[in-house]
Amino acid sequence: MSGMLAIYQREMLILRKRFFRQLAAIAVSPLLYLIAFGLGMGKNLKVGGHSYLEFLIPGLVAMNSMTQAFAMSSEINIARFYWHIFEEFQAAPIRNLSYVSGEVLAGITRALISVVVILVIAALSGVVLSYNIYFWLAVTLNAFVFSSLAVALAMLVKSHSDQALLSNFFITPMAFLGGTFFPVDSMPEWARYILHFLPLTHACKAIRAAAFGQRPVYSSFILLAVLGAVLFVLAFKCVNRARE
């Protein structure tokens, strides 16, 4: 437990040192999407009875919580290949489980901070949705999935340059196809079938339904929880692979 807290505390200390830079970095992309898609198209466009801006906000919450949780892979790689701080963790008497738990928890925290930033921006744009328990549960599960994936992949890559590949293969396609900017239901059947396998599609569904005060999408909650657990175990198994 104290090993996990030490890992988590280190990530939070780093985050605190860069807090305002980090906030600006978190805010810039949702702000651009809101201006470009939301304000540009949002006034006249309706999706499922909601304005496009209302439709977009939960999508941005899902997308940003994904990217911020997944950014842990980049943080770990910098600590591993550039600062060599990972050696300090490897030489410490802590279990792999503590290490993975600390990093995953840090990823979830980053994701939750990014969601608060988006909700503030949304409120300033005049959009206030229902931020109930299901909303926060869906966001947390989404962050759990991508934070665990981030730790697993960070343990598997062999150099810092592989990091860009990870984002290109895992994150960018999901950000654009997972239902952030358009309803997946409006896609052709074959595309809907494929997109159904993306975790972000389920995160968008769950977060959007909660934000619109609709009945919770339990299947998406279960899927995200199971996938998160599988990826967490994978991350745990991968830690030893990072040792020479």
Partner: peptide
Amino acid sequence: NLDNELSVGENLHLHGKLFQ
């Protein structure tokens, strides 16, 4: 392999925490 962004004291504290 010190944490460059943290202070000397913070680096030492974190090590102590890692060793319970």
